[in-house]
Computed example of a mutant assay.
Amino acid sequence: MTIDPRISAIAEEATEWRHDFHAHPELLYDLDRTSARVADLLRQFGCDEVVTGLGRTGVVGLVHGANRTANRAIGLRADMDALPIEEATGAAYASRTPGRMHACGHDGHTAMLLGAAKHLAANRAFNGSVAFIFQPAEEGGAGAKAMIDDGLFTRFPIDEVYGMHNKPGLAVGEFTIRSGAVMASMDRIEIEIDGVGGHAARPHFAIDPVVVGAQIITALQTIVSRRLDPLDSAVVSITTFNAGSAFNVIPQTARLIGTARALSPDVRDQLERQIEELATHIAKAHGATARVTYGRGYPVTVNHAEQTTFAADTAASLIGDDKVDRELAPMMGAEDFAYMLQERPGSIIFLGNGDSAGLHHPRYDFNDAAIPYGISYWTRLVERALPQSKC
Rank of each mutant, 00 (worst) to 15 (best):
S233Y: 06
T293M: 07
I319K: 01
I319S: 03
T280Q: 03
A262H: 06
P230T: 14
G295T: 15
T301F: 12
P230E: 13
L271I: 05
E327A: 15
T309V: 11
S264Y: 05
T301K: 04
L263W: 10
R268N: 10
S233M: 10
V249P: 07
T239P: 02
A260R: 11
L231D: 07
H304Y: 05
G320A: 12
P251K: 02
N242F: 03
T239M: 05
S225G: 09
I282R: 01
V324K: 07
D232I: 02
L278K: 01
A262N: 03
N242S: 04
D269H: 11
P299T: 03
E327S: 14
P251A: 07
P299K: 06
D232S: 14
F241P: 11
A283D: 00
L231I: 15
V236R: 03
E272P: 00
T239K: 04
L228E: 05
A234V: 09
L231P: 00
D313T: 06
A305G: 03
A312P: 10
L256E: 10
A246K: 15
I238A: 08
A329R: 15
Q252P: 00
P330S: 03
T253E: 10
I238K: 10
T301M: 15
N242G: 00
A316F: 05
A311K: 00
Y298A: 00
A285Y: 08
A262F: 04
V249A: 15
Q307R: 11
A305Q: 11
S264G: 07
R255Q: 12
A260T: 15
D232W: 10
I319P: 03
A305W: 04
A279M: 10
S237D: 02
A305V: 12
E327F: 13
R296T: 04
A288H: 02
R261T: 00
I250R: 05
D322S: 14
G320R: 06
R296D: 07
R227I: 02
G287Q: 08
A260K: 08
R273M: 08
A329V: 12
A311Y: 04
E306P: 12
Y298E: 00
I275P: 01
N242K: 11
R326H: 09
Q307T: 06
G258V: 09
T259W: 02
L263T: 01
R326V: 14
K284Q: 12
G320N: 11
E272Q: 15
R227P: 02
D325E: 12
K323D: 07
A262M: 06
A329M: 15
H281W: 11
A234C: 06
A283E: 01
N242D: 12
S317V: 05
K323G: 08
A288S: 01
A288I: 05
R291W: 00
S225F: 14
F247W: 12
A315I: 08
L231T: 14
A290I: 07
A312W: 11
R273S: 10
G295S: 14
G295A: 13
A254V: 09
Y298N: 00
L328C: 06
T309D: 15
R255V: 06
T289K: 13
A262S: 14
G320L: 09
T240N: 12
A246G: 09
N303L: 09
D269A: 15
P330Y: 13
D325K: 10
A285C: 06
S237V: 04
P330Q: 08
F310D: 00
S237R: 10
R296Y: 02
N303Y: 08
G244V: 04
